[in-house]
């Protein structure tokens, strides 16, 4: 495999992990978040600081990273989830800007110069880079997809999806809206933290801008494109939006325009995403399956 292909694939895998976290919050629990990159950043900075300042290995730091992301998810999620829809969107944007500003202006986090010297992940004495790092990212991604699959089948997932569908009706069936929204939010932030830790060790050097509002928009674009609340949507979205800039490199200057147009077209014509039920792609797949049955 060429280095180029491995590099792109690693980034796609990391972005997919973070997008799966967002999918739990937005797709399954129906709570819009436009500040998901904040938790991606919190994971990356926690992992970076623990490895550079505390000298912990990736593996020793990981549980702490996930714990901190979860705890901050509770602290920032609890007040945010008391508001709905537009207000929730604005609040989460605010969280993103505040977290980015803290990384930028508090010297402890390295300020505008960023945080450098983050070592490579070591696995049984082997320093992971290139293909071996890609393998680790893919294993993590598979694990995250498994968690999401389990979540959709669990009672907690059912509660979240009921709240997304009709919060008032769900609460009149004995489902506590606050508890389940928070559960989804925290699960999403912990998964974002995992992506952040992998990103920090992959890059070796991180800056606050890596986790700014445009990154949150990108994550939301990924799940809108792939299909919110579907199991494979975030992966498909991450692959398309990760590969697109490479394919259309000559159009790099118009990338944001392209994303904007893509989002508008999706919302207008395929609001459920590429893998949403009754989408063009799903209908095509169903017809192919139906055709097979016919032939068999």
């Amino acid at each position: 495999m060429s280095t180029y292909f491995v590099t792109i694939s690693t980034f796609i895998a990391i972005q997919a992990i973070v997008a799966y976290g967002l999918n739990i919050i937005v797709g399954y629990a129906g709570q819009i978040s436009l500040g998901h990159a904040a938790f991606f950043g919190i994971g990356a900075y926690t992992a970076g600081l623990l490895s550079t300042k505390a000298g912990l290995s990736f593996w020793a730091a990981l549980p702490i990273v996930l714990l901190i992301c979860g705890a901050l998810g509770v602290i920032l999620g609890l007040p945010s989830l008391r508001v709905r829809e537009d207000f929730l969107a604005i609040t989460t944007i605010g969280i993103n800007f505040i977290v980015e500003a803290v990384f930028l202006y508090v010297p402890f986090f390295g300020g505008a110069m960023g945080l450098g010297g983050i070592p490579k992940i070591v696995f049984f004495g082997v320093r992971l880079k290139g293909e071996s790092l890609l393998a680790l990212c893919l294993v993590c991604l598979a694990f995250v997809i498994l968690i999401c699959w389990w979540f959709t089948k669990s009672w907690a997932g059912l509660g979240c999806r009921a709240i997304a569908s009709d919060e008032t009706a769900a609460s009149s069936m004995g489902i506590s809206p606050v508890r389940f929204k928070l559960l989804a939010f925290v699960l999403g932030t912990v998964i974002a933290g995992l992506g952040g830790a992998l990103y920090a060790h992959r890059m070796g050097f991180i800056t606050p801008a890596d986790f700014g509002f445009p990154v949150s928009t990108m994550m939301l674009s990924i799940i809108v494109l792939g299909g919110m609340g579907t199991l494979w949507g975030p992966l498909l979205g991450a692959i398309i939006l990760g590969a697109l800039p490479e394919v259309f490199r000559p159009l790099a200057d118009y990338r944001m325009l392209l994303y904007g147009a893509l989002l508008l077209l999706m919302v207008r014509f395929q609001p459920g995403g590429l893998l949403g039920d009754a989408s063009v792609l799903m209908n095509l797949l169903k017809r192919m399956k139906g055709g097979d049955r016919h032939a068999g």
Partner: peptide
């Protein structure tokens, strides 16, 4: 009123 079933479930 109006059933309010969970449409996507």
């Amino acid at each position: 009123e109006r059933a309010r079933v969970f449409a996507h479930l």
